[in-house]
Design a protein around this nucleic acid. Structure first.
Length: 540
DNA sequence: CCGTCTTTAAACAGAG
DNA sequence: GCTCTGTTTAAAGACG
């Protein structure tokens, strides 16, 4: 039934009768990104690559349909063994029209590159006038602080010349770069949508408060803007933020069963009852289909917090997002509870305060309270890392960090499993390989509507083993807007009602201090994130 | 296949 | 009796 609906919508969209919905947008994208088509496209577009090279390239990107092997080396190798054909509803064909549109669109970015030097795809877009002239003049949007700002790159380049060389060598016109470019476009798109949303909200607030309405918003129609910029409507995703959850249709309406949700969690209202996927959830797709068949199905999000994003950074960076979007946070209850407790000034919370934190921080937890509250209580009781302490004002819960770290699995940094989990954790299960590669490689800022640098985001994803106190401190504080400003020191042993072995406490402290030191140093993100992993290593 | 982890659900008890 | 809090058990799915 849903397939039929989807087909119908797709047909209408092809006829231009209805605006593209996320469903069709994603579908089109996926269709357009059919591996063979891509290869063909690139041959056509670039005209540079010999067939041999193209073949080699295809091997490198593993554009085959075989998806079982997810043990790709990441990300520099750019091999992404991801189900290219796990397309929505099994539709892996590529309608010629879509392909043509894609080609047209890509060409709009790349034509000038062909006879030219390879210039970043971005720079050809209208509103970023970045010519060679400018590049050599010393500024380039992709270059700053001696680093390549290409999503996920961060290669050090001493000067602009070196950067240009690097750009041309490493970010030439290929599948990966293009996929990354696409992802970046989505990032921008989502940000625009979010901005639009927030503007509307502001407008409403001001109206409500009888303040003078502000000027007409520049982002009233982000889609229109985007369509201007992007001839192909493949990217015209209707990414709604569920501000209060009121504006959204049910995900089942928007995303027929088996169809990948847009890679922004904002797009999908996740109702606990239907158990729609959190985009960042590793179980997104599985649980999605599962939920449809069972009505109420448990979300399986294992590893999502362990191997994907440190909860602190994710929450810090997507603070507003989770507040407004009805998206299930991709973390375990234990992680969330711990984070809530650690984030509190005294590092102790009553059950009710924990509840409040959940509802305050996550739109998702503003409903179905019985379920998740039960889960919270269950987790508090179940995990030894949560310690109940009798207090003057009753019982409060604290975190036994040592216990918490104990239960963490060995670090998985950079392992193929991590990569796989990371990708699936993003909920892009049915996107194509290049796309996912790009996502995982450098454009995870997609998940970070708030000012997360793509590179930082990617490194977060690539290097994290799990969340920890120090990362909590660093990330949250660096973000600054969503949580109290506690020093690492404070975090490490500001309040610890429970008695703990001195040596272990010492360990935590040293780790935290270490992390705190990194906070003030302009370390490269990867180093910083490696440091984030230290607690476990140190403690175990 | 098994063990572990996580989630969900539910039953139960004690306190206010 | 009701609600909140807290404990415990069980089942199921994901995953190594």
């Amino acid at each position: 039934m849903q397939q039929l609906q989807q087909q119908h919508i797709l047909n209408l969209q092809r006829q231009g009768l209805v605006p593209l919905q996320p469903t069709a947008a994603m579908q089109s994208l996926q269709q357009a990104m059919c591996p063979s088509d891509l290869q063909q496209l690139w041959k056509e577009v670039s005209g540079v690559q010999s067939s041999e090279e193209a073949l080699k390239h295809a091997e490198g990107l593993d554009l085959s349909t075989n998806s079982s092997n997810s043990t790709s080396a990441f990300p520099k190798a750019a091999s992404a063994h991801i189900p290219l054909h796990s397309l929505v509803n099994g539709q892996s064909h590529t309608p010629k029209r879509d392909r043509a549109r894609l080609f047209e669109w890509i060409s709009s970015f790349t034509k000038a590159d062909i006879g030219d030097e390879h210039v970043p795809l971005y720079s050809k877009s209208g509103h970023t006038p970045s010519s060679h002239h400018e590049e050599h003049a010393g500024s380039h949007p992709l270059y700053g602080h001696g680093e390549c700002k290409w999503p996920g790159c961060e290669a050090l380049c001493e000067d602009m010349g070196q950067f240009i060389k690097h750009l041309n060598n490493e970010h030439a016109l290929d599948d990966r770069s293009t996929a990354q470019c696409r992802v970046q476009m989505q990032v921008v798109q989502q940000l625009e949508i979010q901005l639009s949303k927030e503007s509307e909200r502001l407008q409403a607030m001001m109206t409500h408060l009888h303040m003078r309405p502000s000027e007409p918003k520049p982002f009233n129609q982000p889609m229109a803007l985007l369509c201007k910029q992007q001839p192909s409507r493949l990217w015209n995703l209707n990414l709604n933020l569920a501000s209060g959850g009121s504006l959204l249709k049910r995900d089942s309406d928007m995303y027929p069963e088996g169809l990948a949700h847009p890679p922004t969690s904002a797009a999908s209202p996740i109702t606990p009852m239907r158990q729609g996927p959190s985009v960042i959830s590793s179980s997104s797709l599985h649980s999605h289909s599962h939920s449809h068949s069972h009505g109420v199905g448990p979300i399986r999000r294992r590893n999502s917090d362990k191997y994907c994003t440190p909860i602190a950074s994710e929450l810090a960076q997507n603070c507003e997002f989770y507040k407004n979007a009805d998206v299930r946070p991709p973390f375990t209850y234990a992680s969330l509870i711990r984070h809530a407790i650690l984030e509190s000034p005294d590092r102790q919370l009553t059950l009710n305060e924990i509840y409040n934190w959940f509802t305050r921080k996550f739109a998702y937890f503003r409903r179905n309270t019985a379920t998740w509250k039960n889960a919270v209580r269950h987790n508090l009781s179940l995990h030894k890392c949560f310690v109940r302490v009798e207090n003057v004002k009753g019982a409060v819960w604290t975190v036994d960090e040592v216990e918490y770290q104990k239960r963490r699995p060995p670090k998985m940094t950079g392992s193929p499993t991590l990569v796989k989990n990371m990708i699936s954790g993003l909920g892009f299960g049915s996107l194509n390989a290049s796309y996912q590669a790009a996502l995982a490689e450098g454009s995870l800022s997609l998940l970070s509507p708030s000012m997360m640098s793509p590179s930082a985001a990617s490194l977060n994803m690539l290097h994290v083993g799990h969340d920890d106190v120090s990362s909590t401190v660093e990330q949250v504080n660096s973000n600054g807007s969503c949580s109290p400003t506690l020093s690492p020191h404070q975090y490490s042993h500001h309040v610890h009602v429970k008695e703990e072995p001195t040596d272990l406490e010492e360990d935590i402290r040293s780790v935290s201090l270490l992390s705190g030191a990194t906070h003030s140093l302009p370390l490269p993100s990867d180093e910083r994130d490696l440091e984030e992993d230290l607690p476990t290593e140190e403690l175990e």
